[in-house]
Simulated scan of single mutants.
Amino acid sequence: MAEPNVLLLDEPTNDLDIDTLQELESLLDGWAGTLVVISHDRYLIERICDSTWALFGDGKLTNLPGGIQQYLDRRRELIAAPAAPSAPSSASPGQDAASGTASGAASSSPGLSAQEDRELKKELNALERKMQKLSAKVDTLTAKLADAAMPADGNIDTALLADLDRELQGVRSEHDDCEMRWLEVAEMREEGHV
């Protein structure tokens, strides 16, 4: 148990303040092992989970490739179903009787599957968090560089300046790479929704 690879979490975000919640989400988002999460927290599920499952009261565990949105759509259908007449449907198996479309198809994105869309969204969120951290690091290094350029004793350590500058350039380059990847992923996601 020193290094677990499976976590079972039942409503892990209940009663957490925002800072603790964000730290927990970051930790779980980077978890290398398997997570089984039971939660009503839609944002948490969309951020950390690769596969979504639900119970609809029929005694079965149902996989939802469309994620939370598919769950909400299915719940609406189930609630509306008793009000609808129970006439036989001419739709073939695997098709939605109301629309004639294949069941499980992502209605929100014709070019991307729901799973692909969620993965791209998850990557965008991860890139945004990484860029925020890199921006903070750029600010810190810039401040250190300014302090090193004007020391209190007047003795400038050129080696320290060179090291800080090299590190700053590396962080800026990494930030630029993240920004370019973010633009690529955002474009892929946008094209998938057209």
Rank of each mutant, 00 (worst) to 15 (best):
S51E: 14
W53D: 10
W53G: 11
W53P: 09
W53Q: 13
A54R: 05
L55D: 00
L55E: 01
F56A: 08
G57I: 02
G57V: 10
G57F: 08
D58C: 05
G59Y: 02
K60Q: 08
L61G: 03
L61A: 09
L61I: 07
L61R: 09
T62Q: 12
T62D: 04
N63T: 08
N63S: 08
N63P: 09
N63Q: 06
L64M: 07
L64T: 02
P65R: 07
P65Q: 11
P65I: 10
G66H: 03
G66V: 05
G67F: 11
G67H: 13
I68S: 00
Q70H: 06
Q70Y: 06
Y71P: 07
Y71T: 03
L72N: 13
D73F: 01
R75K: 15
E77H: 03
E77F: 04
E77A: 08
E77S: 05
L78M: 15
L78K: 13
I79A: 10
A80P: 06
A80C: 10
A80Y: 02
A81S: 13
P82H: 04
A84H: 02
A84T: 05
A84V: 04
A84M: 10
S86H: 07
S86M: 06
S86D: 12
A87H: 00
A87W: 01
A87V: 01
P88G: 04
S89V: 08
S89F: 02
S89R: 07
S90L: 14
A91E: 12
P93Q: 03
P93I: 00
P93T: 02
G94H: 01
Q95H: 10
Q95T: 11
D96R: 07
D96T: 07
A97G: 11
A98H: 11
A98L: 14
A98R: 13
A98M: 06
G100R: 09
S103W: 04
S103V: 15
G104A: 07
G104M: 06
G104T: 04
A105H: 00
A105D: 01
A105L: 02
A106F: 14
A106K: 05
S108N: 14
S108C: 06
S109M: 08
P110T: 02
G111S: 00
G111N: 02
G111T: 00
S113T: 15
A114T: 12
A114F: 14
